[in-house]
């Protein structure tokens, strides 16, 4: 078999012969970037990558209209696809993306999501109220709500002194076991928050129900201590981390509600498009919830055990809450108006 010379070739074969070398070069560059990243390229190579990519795209477009060589078309399509994935890769620096997220992204998303936030906090508060009132009516409700492993002896009928001890830990823990406790809390609570968030896509009801149930638990728990005359003490005990932690659950629920509302009431969009639209703010709410849970776990794991004074607990808890509020209310204001 011999190769025919160029003048003998048919048009599409000539087209290919003229460009094949540049495709092969692009293939080599793409393989290199896929293996060791864009940073491995020299300045000249990076420039070449871009221009060779455009040439290959051009070739694909021309080949589709002049060539019936199936293998060539498949090759060009795959080459362009690979090069496209290499060139349109995420190129933001992680620090830049994080900075944008914290300065503008999250606070603006929170300010845009008033209704879902109301739903999230309402679920918690109504649950809390229901739990409190039911307990006052009949303390045996407590056993219905609270699973025994969570109650840990803190049940109706427990003596006031036992309850007091459970609030003001007298046995001193060393720093290490506090760290274990904090990391357990974080790992556990974050999973629950992601759960509450993701369930929101099923028209928000499961998120609402889970948050409501958490509220009922909380209400019954407070009522139990209030009956023993320890009302302010339990509020302080809960406040130091709870202001952040319980708000985080509500925020996660709000993120879920945002998705659920998009499914329930997509407006003039299709449900799928509405869901996609809502996800931008919803995901930021979920990230915020995760962040708050990290802080809450640190506070619950360390500070609550180390600080035994009721007033200091209240001040730290609500002060932290105030900080969250200030950040979310004020950050990223001028950029918002600038856009």
């Amino acid at each position: 078999m011999t190769k025919t010379n160029a003048s003998d070739m048919i048009r599409s074969a000539r087209f290919r012969a003229e460009r094949e070398a540049s495709w092969k070069r692009l293939e080599g560059l793409v393989a290199e970037v896929e293996k060791s990243g864009t940073a491995a390229l020299s300045y000249g190579q990076a420039l070449d990558l871009a221009s060779l990519y455009r040439q290959a795209m051009n070739s694909l477009s021309v080949a589709r209209s002049i060539s019936m060589d199936k293998s060539l078309l498949l090759y060009l399509e795959a080459l362009c696809a690979r090069a496209y994935l290499v060139i349109y890769a995420p190129q933001e620096s992680i620090t830049g993306a994080l900075q944008r997220l914290f300065v503008t992204g999250i606070p603006q998303a929170v300010r845009r999501s008033a209704i879902p936030l109301v739903i999230g906090f309402a679920a918690m508060m109504i649950g809390c109220l229901v739990g409190y009132l039911l307990f006052q009516q009949d303390p045996s409700w407590y056993f219905t709500f609270v699973p025994p492993e969570l109650a840990d002896g803190r049940a109706p009928g427990a003596s006031a002194s036992y309850l007091r001890d459970s609030l003001y830990d007298t046995d001193t823990r060393d720093g290490e076991s506090l760290g274990v406790f904090a990391s357990f809390l974080f790992s556990h609570n974050t999973r629950i928050a992601i759960f509450i968030f993701a369930l929101g896509v099923f028209v928000a009801l499961p998120s609402f129900a889970l948050t409501f149930y958490n509220g009922v638990l909380l209400g019954a728990f407070v009522a139990l201590y209030a009956e023993a005359g320890l009302g302010p003490d339990v509020v302080a005990w809960l406040s130091i981390h709870g202001v952040t932690e319980i708000s985080a659950i509500c925020v996660a629920c709000a993120g879920g509600a945002k998705l659920g509302l998009a499914v329930l009431n997509p407006g003039s969009l299709t449900r799928r498009a509405a869901l996609k639209d809502a996800s931008h703010d919803a995901v930021k709410l979920a990230i915020l919830a995760g962040l708050m849970l990290i802080v809450a776990a640190l506070v619950e794991g360390f500070l609550r055990q180390l600080i035994q004074d009721m007033w200091l607990r209240l001040v730290i808890g609500w002060g932290l809450g105030l900080c969250w509020m200030l950040w979310l209310a004020l950050s990223g204001r001028n950029r918002e108006s600038g856009q």
Binding site: M9, W23, K24, D69, S71, L72, R82, S279
Partner: peptide, 21 residues
């Protein structure tokens, strides 16, 4: 669906010789 993403096969590159040559 929420994120607007697809999961696709990584395209494979095979260039066969041109039969017409």
């Amino acid at each position: 669906m929420i994120a607007g993403t697809l999961v696709v096969d990584q395209p494979q590159l095979v260039l066969m010789p041109d039969l017409s040559t």
